[in-house]
């Protein structure tokens, strides 16, 4: 880290000195993306509205009877959450790719796999977390029985962390492709299935009066694994997309 001034001699530095600014770079990137979302709230709201709309389709398509709705509610809520996550993942790197800042991010003197974590964190904070907080509201619409609301919110919050991380790999691979969004869905949906299984499993357990925390622990383990390995894959996929 060094002070900045307009008349300093350019000096050749070793990477270790430059690497000291990693925290600053992470914070700046995190802040930059967060400000971006705040200035264009419509982009962050779209997946939430989509989530609500998909939920609305089910009573219309199946039946408004509370018993039937309650039966399908956990699955419907989770599937809708996965689909709306897909909607937002396509845009995760696209704007950065198009305006050239992604290329600049790749040229920063810091590990790309750490810098992308800042971006993924913003994605989770602005899509996954709001989704998890909003889900109980839609649970009411689907007559979701008492006792599973907490499980719904908490598992969605943790599970959407996995989804942001794994999805970012697909987003990185498809960011340079003209019709990347379609391909993105095909690439990452199979990888989301374990999260779906344990997310709905936790709700099933909560509904039948059992323990749902063990399920949450499994999702937590998946999140830990994703945190440890996905950033490397995201960085590799971005390098492929930007430079071939």
């Amino acid at each position: 880290m060094s002070a900045c001034s307009t008349d300093v001699e350019p000096a050749v530095v070793a990477v270790k000195e430059a690497g000291a600014g990693l925290g600053m770079a992470l914070w700046a990137t995190f802040q930059r993306d967060l400000v971006g979302v705040a200035r264009r709230p419509a982009d962050a709201l779209t997946p939430l509205v989509f989530f609500a709309m998909v939920i609305t389709l089910f009573p219309l398509g199946i039946s408004p009877e509370p018993e039937r709705l309650a039966w399908i509610a956990p699955g419907v809520l989770w599937v809708a959450a996965l689909l709306s996550a897909l909607l937002s993942l396509d845009g995760l790197f696209r704007a950065d790719y198009e305006d050239g800042t992604l290329e600049q991010l790749l040229l920063a003197p810091h590990p790309l796999s750490l810098l992308v974590v800042a971006k993924v964190l913003v994605h989770w904070l602005t899509t996954g977390l709001p989704l998890a907080l909003m889900a109980p509201l839609l649970g009411v619409l689907l007559a979701l029985p008492q006792g599973s609301y907490l499980a719904l919110s908490v598992t969605l919050a943790v599970g959407s962390g996995c989804i942001s991380l794994i999805g970012a790999i697909g987003a990185g691979l498809t960011v340079g492709l003209a019709r990347g969004g379609m391909l993105l869905s095909l690439l990452v949906l199979p990888l989301f299935m374990p999260v779906l299984i344990f997310g709905t499993g936790a709700m099933g357990a909560a509904l039948s009066g059992g323990e749902w925390l063990p399920h949450l622990a499994v999702i937590g383990a998946m999140l830990a694994l994703a945190l440890a390995s996905a950033p490397l894959a995201i960085a590799a996929s971005l390098r492929i997309s930007v430079h071939g």
Partner: peptide, 25 residues
């Protein structure tokens, strides 16, 4: 070449997930 690299990355990501998918299912 980009396609080759992308397919390689995806195959590696997939193979880590296969046991997880298998046990989950």
């Amino acid at each position: 070449l980009s396609g080759s690299k992308a397919a390689s990355v995806l195959a590696m990501v997939g193979v880590i997930n296969i046991p997880i998918i298998k046990y989950s299912v």
